[in-house]
Structures are given as structure tokens and as C-alpha cells.
């Protein structure tokens, strides 16, 4: 065994024992909770919205804050960040396919909400219909 080969396992062990940064599933909220990731948004009118990402649609994001569920069209999202992720939306642009797929996996209902399930959810929040955030 050459010196390099002998040193390799030691080097790897040192790397493993040294500092570790970033997220792990141990501290990653969506891995331990049924809820979707928390979204923090600013709309084109300057309004701030923070809530759970319920569903990712082609038209926008469905978010809930415990009392109300709303659809936020991509066009009105000036900026949006998602807790414990580096995902980001801005300038009213819809996310690309890759980002949309990642967001969908972090939403409460990655499979999408059927009309019946949506109605049940709205009923639970005392809403008759899904409100849409205006520009």
C-alpha cells in the first residue's frame, strides 16, 4: 500500500470529523411535520404574506396561514422565499419546471388537491371558496 493510499482513509476520516454545515433531515421541518414548507412572500402591491405552502399549481401557489387559504398567482409575487431551502421566486415570474417540481414536493399536497379535497379543506377553514390574492 502506498503512502497516498494509507493517507486517504485518514484524510476522509478527518473530513468526516470536522465541521459540518447545512441542513440535515434531523433539523429539517418538512421531514417531521405533515405541513408544507413555510413560504414568505411579498406581493407586487408590497403586501407581506407568510404561510404554509399547501399546493403548487400552474397558476400560482396555494398558501394557508391557519385561518385563511388563498391562491397567490405567480404574477403578483414580487419575491418569495421558502424556509430551510434556497428556493426563491421573484418579479412575478412563474417557476421553471425544476423549481416547480421541488416546491411541489415540499407542499402539503404534492399530489395536488382534487376539487373535493379542496372543498373539505375550505370547509374546515370556514371558507366557501378559494380566495385569490389580487395584484
Amino acid at each position: 500500500m502506498t503512502a497516498t493510499r494509507r493517507a486517504l482513509p485518514l484524510g476522509l476520516a478527518l473530513v468526516a470529523l470536522s465541521c459540518v454545515f447545512g441542513q440535515s433531515v434531523v433539523t429539517y421541518d418538512p421531514a417531521h411535520s405533515p405541513r408544507g414548507v413555510t413560504a414568505t412572500m411579498r406581493t407586487s402591491s408590497g403586501r407581506h404574506l407568510t404561510g404554509e405552502l399547501i399546493e403548487v399549481r400552474d397558476a400560482g401557489l396555494v398558501v394557508g396561514n391557519g385561518t385563511t387559504i388563498v391562491l397567490v398567482p405567480y404574477a403578483v409575487i414580487r419575491s418569495a422565499a421558502f424556509a430551510q431551502t434556497s428556493l426563491f421566486l421573484e418579479k412575478g415570474r412563474a417557476p421553471d419546471v425544476s423549481t416547480r417540481g421541488k416546491l411541489r414536493l415540499l407542499s402539503r399536497f404534492p399530489q395536488g388537491l382534487s376539487p373535493a379535497l379542496l372543498q373539505q379543506l375550505l370547509d374546515a377553514h370556514g371558507q366557501s371558496e378559494l380566495a385569490t390574492v389580487a395584484p
Partner: peptide, 13 residues
């Protein structure tokens, strides 16, 4: 120097 390991959470269907 101390080595640093970066990690992230991967979510996959």
C-alpha cells in the same frame, strides 16, 4: 486547516 463538510436535504418522490 479544519475541513468543512456541506450538506443539504434532498427530497425525492
Amino acid at each position: 486547516a479544519p475541513a468543512c463538510m456541506f450538506q443539504h436535504v434532498d427530497v425525492r418522490p
